[in-house]
Write a protein that binds this DNA or RNA. Sequence first.
DNA 1: GAATGTGAACACATTCACAGCC
DNA 2: GGCTGTGAATGTGTTCACATTC
Lengths: 237, 237
Amino acid sequence: MKSEKISELTTNRLSVYLRCLNLLAAAGIKTISSQALADQFNMNSAQIRKDLAHFGEFGVRGVGYSVDELRRHLTQILGLDRPHRVGIVGAGNLGTALANYNGFTASNFEVVALFDNDKEKIGRRVGKAAVAVHDVRKLARVVRDAEIDVAVIAVPARVAQRVLNQVMSAGIKAVLNFAPVRLHARLGVKVKTVDLTIQLESLSYFLARPQITCVTNPRQILPYEEIAQREEQELQS
Amino acid sequence: MKSEKISELTTNRLSVYLRCLNLLAAAGIKTISSQALADQFNMNSAQIRKDLAHFGEFGVRGVGYSVDELRRHLTQILGLDRPHRVGIVGAGNLGTALANYNGFTASNFEVVALFDNDKEKIGRRVGKAAVAVHDVRKLARVVRDAEIDVAVIAVPARVAQRVLNQVMSAGIKAVLNFAPVRLHARLGVKVKTVDLTIQLESLSYFLARPQITCVTNPRQILPYEEIAQREEQELQS
DNA sequence: GAATGTGAACACATTCACAGCC
DNA sequence: GGCTGTGAATGTGTTCACATTC
């Protein structure tokens, strides 16, 4: 366990590894080598070992990794052993869709509040979990009372920076931003932006040039059987 | 103009550049240097020049780039001069939210169909644009009739690969995937995955390790009353 | 003089390959 | 023998710095 700086690419992969291990555990597999893991989910075994090595020595030479043990380690490393409470700013289409999304809960995230400035929406409750929509002006208070530690920004681009400033003032340190703007966060605050415009426009670039990118990442095509089998395994998630 | 392979990081940035130039154009600015562009949107000027240089020589030495001219070039490079027609598979929360999202239209994308396997949903029309929900079994036919060239996968992870296979069989070459799985695409098909689970879990990792970036002066942390007061003020503007 | 376009230098990320251990 | 953990080698992306052009 060193105290070097870990790349975001690495932490993203840790999340993927954990997901893969959950599938293996659900399939009753107890032990796996980095090689087998890499083969099964087309990754690189050396990269798996290197990523894990940043945090400790979790494997046994000659044997591999204990699936359950590694799951526990990754859960702890990613901080998923503690629950996180999410507040979503912007109760529009996207915000309410995210409030209903249950993929969050699997990772120990719970949406506990929505915020908006539209009087029509304030006071309503949204979705199965009946999440309350609060006045965005009361954000700091609700954040404190509901112990919110993660914010999602789902507002129009032109107000996103203002919302982020408010969110940061309320003491929140982790933000997932869906507005297509580059936001300025102060030190100690992590903002991850999911920019659908960029994704779509990159797809458009690809469509305009089918010949060039055909060779990007020549991904091995699996036989159908194996894909179907994998689907069964995923039924758990 | 060379015919080398362009990195996805580059195409992503081209999309950002275009967005910045649109802002500049709206502000009436006619000419800009890579340096000024970089300063204004915190990017690196050399990178801008290098990215653009892959596609031609668009600037004038000693002067800079014509904003309008460069906008036209980028629009053409990204293939945004031709409209794209989008079909969304999965008429759940996320799918319908995306069908309503108007950020797409700005980039010449139009959502023209939704697909689902739920009989309750099939036949309905969703959102302001009244996009029809089709039986997912008729995907190939609707894709052909409605000339859909981009698919969005907004279904549960366990069925995402099956949906992708169907989408590929219908001849679609560009896919935006929201299911948190790594999908296997065949050659010539581009899949971009937006994995919210990874983003959230990476944020969680960050929260579990505040010491790394937390350099905030403790004196700057305001008492709650002051924060609330400041919020009121910020929302006035 | 001012800014582009670009080779060279640097920084970062991935993969190889093997010593060391079970 | 088999697999981990890791230095060394490779590959990729970014930034510097300057010759070149207007």
